[in-house]
């Protein structure tokens, strides 16, 4: 549990940090909360010649609504989300998510930007961000660019971020009227990655049918899986049990989980279905449906 040697940099500004990343290229890694990166280094599963610690850069930790968007600073700690009145009152799906990320000690350090930038399909934020239609703001040498979260996750531990970019903000559209979302995770024990987990969001039309639906699954493939076919099935329907079941089945069918100590693939797919149903039901209840 001792990492190989590395150089440690502690820039005091975003520009300085981006400069270091540009200078060292692939040899550099951004150290945010360190809750994924440091174990990888300590187990010598990964190496980085240079760690660029963004912990001293001001202005990267905030949670606010502005311009029709919820804006979360890239280095915002998970525990800050957990204790935010804004999140607790307006974004129950985010609270669901943050409460099942690892454990309180990890959440005190881990950051929302890190959770996304790591590109781990076992992480919990990606599925939630997918159903919320979030945007990731990346800052690099040429300034900011906005990446829709649908285009962010490219593969296992691979994202649209360039080696010299840092996640500085996450933007989430403010919730529409008669909408609700939920994240439901099934894990072997607290702190584990999901055996399966599902994020769901539902917006109801005035006539009680589903106007908009989001459904995504965690740890069911090389990236979090957005269940577009299932979403399309839901839109325009009355949200009864059979409709939700059928969408959940479609969502699970589109996954490709790996067998591991959490279960065989058939079990995981079934858990994806079971959890998708539970998440949809919870989201529906929060949207004011039955």
């Amino acid at each position: 549990m001792i990492p190989a040697a590395f150089d440690y940099h502690a820039p005091k500004s975003l520009a300085e940090a981006v400069g270091l990343l540009s200078q060292y290229g692939d040899g550099a890694k951004v150290l945010s909360g360190g809750q994924s990166l440091l174990p990888l280094l300590k187990l010598r599963l990964g190496q980085a010649a240079h760690l660029v610690d963004i912990g001293r850069i001001p202005g990267l930790e905030y949670i606010k609504e502005e311009g029709g968007m919820l804006r979360i600073g890239g280095r915002t700690r998970e525990s800050a989300l957990e204790h935010s009145d804004l999140i607790r009152s307006r974004y129950p799906i985010l609270l669901d998510t943050v409460l099942v990320i690892a454990d309180p000690l990890v959440r005190n350090m881990a950051t929302v930007g890190g959770n996304l930038a790591h590109g781990d399909p076992g992480n919990d934020h990606p599925a939630t961000m997918l159903v919320l239609g979030a945007q990731v703001v990346a800052t690099g040498p040429k300034g900011e660019r906005v990446i829709p979260v649908d285009k962010f996750f490219l593969g296992l531990f691979s994202t649209a971020l360039k080696p010299d970019e840092i996640v500085t903000e996450i933007r989430i559209p403010m919730p529409a009227a008669r909408s609700g979302g939920a994240y439901v995770k099934f894990e072997r024990k607290v702190g584990d990655y999901a055996t399966a987990a599902a994020a769901a969001s539902i917006t109801l039309a005035a006539n009680g049918t589903i106007a908009q639906a989001g459904l995504a699954l965690t740890n069911m493939g090389p990236t979090s899986v957005r269940a577009t076919a299932a979403e399309q099935q839901l839109v325009g329907k009355k949200p009864d049990a059979a409709v939700l079941e059928s969408a959940a089945r479609a969502a699970a069918q589109a996954t490709s989980p790996n067998a591991d100590r959490r279960g065989a693939t058939d079990y995981k797919k079934e858990m994806g279905r079971v959890l998708a149903v539970r998440a949809l039901k919870k989201a529906l209840a929060r949207a004011g449906g039955n």
């Binding site: 024990k189 607290v190 702190g191 100590r261």
Partner: peptide, 15 residues
């Protein structure tokens, strides 16, 4: 199999 606390599941207060 189960050679780390990732897969050797020691229960916590939560379980």
């Amino acid at each position: 199999q189960g050679g780390s606390f990732m897969d050797y599941l020691v229960p916590t207060a939560m379980e």
